[in-house]
Design a protein around this nucleic acid. Structure first.
Lengths: 139, 139
DNA sequence: CTTCCTGCAAAATGTTTGCATATCC
DNA sequence: GGATATGCAAACATTTTGCAGGAAG
């Protein structure tokens, strides 16, 4: 927690927003997590913060572009610190999420050529679904 | 509506489930739609069906594999009749959805080689986001 | 006439908003 | 001290569940 926060501090100050306990610890948690986290998972770690604070913080981080918000097919949103864009595999059975290293999707440019109705492509989401080994073995 | 329903009829009968008005018209609507529809959009077309019936029907179709359920980043689910797998572009501003013709994602097999934790990959979701021409022009 | 479906009411879940108080700078 | 954050309560939106009456085969 020493000064891993330069990045966060910069993004917040640029917008006249304050460095608070909640923002710092939530950012740290996302940064060290090996997988995307939902608001509830974060809340479970920090029961002393109200869930509203967690939602507001995550939304803000996503707005500032310091974390990404993912739609992984379930009923809730996931957030991850992802300086390098990548994809995920989600277990249909237990929800386990694994990250895949590099971006495997076609370039936005090649998509622009295929659309009639869009002026600009800004990003994409590529997620895989399947069965993780432990659910698979457990039959 | 004459006999476009062979497909639906077969899938329902195989599972001892009944062919009803709601199922028939919702299936027809999805089949002729050029884009994925949400439960609310369907309800708006068929105000005489309860929204619960619409949710149950869509969930059933998705379970039977005759429609696909999509997570397009918003807060609700979308459903489409998609005998041929494809992707979409969604306008970040107005939500307009355009279909892209073919599948552009890497083959599941090539993904299997990249994961340590998964025994099987069953499907994927690839969606693009951007600004549609009409939102772009409207500034 | 039995089984499955639908509507209604109610609940569950995830997320957002309003406002008074607390915290940051 | 002034601006921004937080907690609490309440609202909201989407989706799910329970149950009694209705339609399908």
């Amino acid at each position: 927690m020493i000064n891993l926060n330069g990045e966060l501090k910069g993004a917040l100050e640029k917008n006249g927003q304050k460095i608070t306990k909640a923002r710092t610890v939530i950012f740290e948690l996302l940064k060290k997590s090996q997988k995307p986290l939902s608001a509830q998972e974060i809340q479970k770690k920090f029961t002393d913060f109200d869930r509203v604070t967690i939602y507001r913080t995550l939304e803000q981080f996503s707005r500032l572009g310091i974390v990404s918000k993912l739609a992984l097919g379930g009923d809730r949103a996931y957030f991850e610190y992802a300086p390098v864009h990548h994809h995920h595999i989600v277990c249909k059975n237990c929800g386990t999420i694994e990250e895949l290293s590099e971006c495997l999707a076609p370039k936005n440019m090649s998509i622009s050529k295929k659309t009639k109705k869009f002026a600009k492509i800004s990003h994409h989401s590529l997620e895989f679904f399947g069965t993780c080994t432990s659910c698979h073995n457990r039959h």
